[in-house]
Amino acid sequence: MTESQTRPDLAALLADAAMSMGGEPNYDATLEAIVREAQKSIPGTDEAGLSLLSSGRIKTAAPSSDFVEHIDQFQYQFGEGPCLDAILEADFFRTNNMAAESRWPRFAPAAVREGVQSMLAFRLHSDGQILGALNLYSRHRDAFDNEAIYTGQPFAAHASIALSHSREKVQLLEALDNRDVIGMAKGILMERFKIDDERAFSLLVNLSQRSQEKLRTVASNVVAEARSAVP
């Protein structure tokens, strides 16, 4: 029996992975599911993690172990490596002999010293926006064959969708939370100073500008102060 015959059908494998990644209750759980399913689904993978773009910076998320974060720090420190290239240049980057790698002259020797022999990184993107990269690591040479690419590319597409949807949920909840806090603060100011909604909001904006704090922070302070004054 061949290896391809012993592995689950790719469509079924990806369907199960997509359901797992898309069914998590919150953002952190979604990231952990992406990494967990990558380890299960993509052949050759010993460790996995995510490098995500956030506020113009790249940071590691949901590493399968401290080892992953340690290796990633070399990439960020040297400004080179497969995950950075996947984010900036192409859909994926693979190396199956890190010791002979010339594309990343500073990162490769550091990774080899820590025991990395093979790496595979896939870009994560959705609706034209680059989200980051899915990074796979192996302590063995020639770990990632063409099957890993064949499986990893559609997997990364599913992961991108799950990641994008989860981020949208977070942003929506934050927007609703901000609106609720600002609404409560406006109500407090309207009652306290006998002013209308528009003037209450203008007062919050003025306080935000003068204190150089975010509007939500100022609103939260107003609400907290009002609550503390209640006997």
Rank of each mutant, 00 (worst) to 15 (best):
S208K: 03
D127G: 08
P82Q: 05
S118P: 03
P43Q: 08
K40V: 10
L134D: 09
S102T: 09
K186Q: 07
G49D: 01
E198Y: 10
D142N: 14
R192Q: 08
N206G: 12
E198L: 14
Q209H: 11
E101T: 00
S20A: 15
A156M: 07
P25D: 08
A61M: 11
S228N: 07
G81W: 07
M98L: 10
M21P: 06
R227Q: 13
V222E: 03
S4C: 11
E147I: 15
A159C: 11
A38W: 04
R57V: 02
Q77L: 11
F93W: 12
T95V: 07
Q73A: 15
A159G: 09
E168W: 10
G22N: 08
E147R: 14
D180C: 00
R210F: 12
K186M: 09
I58H: 07
H140L: 07
K40D: 09
E101G: 00
E225R: 15
G23M: 11
C83N: 04
T6K: 03
R210P: 00
T151A: 12
Y137T: 06
R106L: 15
L173C: 03
E37L: 04
A143W: 05
Q39P: 05
E80R: 14
S55F: 10
F144L: 13
A15R: 10
A111V: 06
S164E: 15
A62G: 07
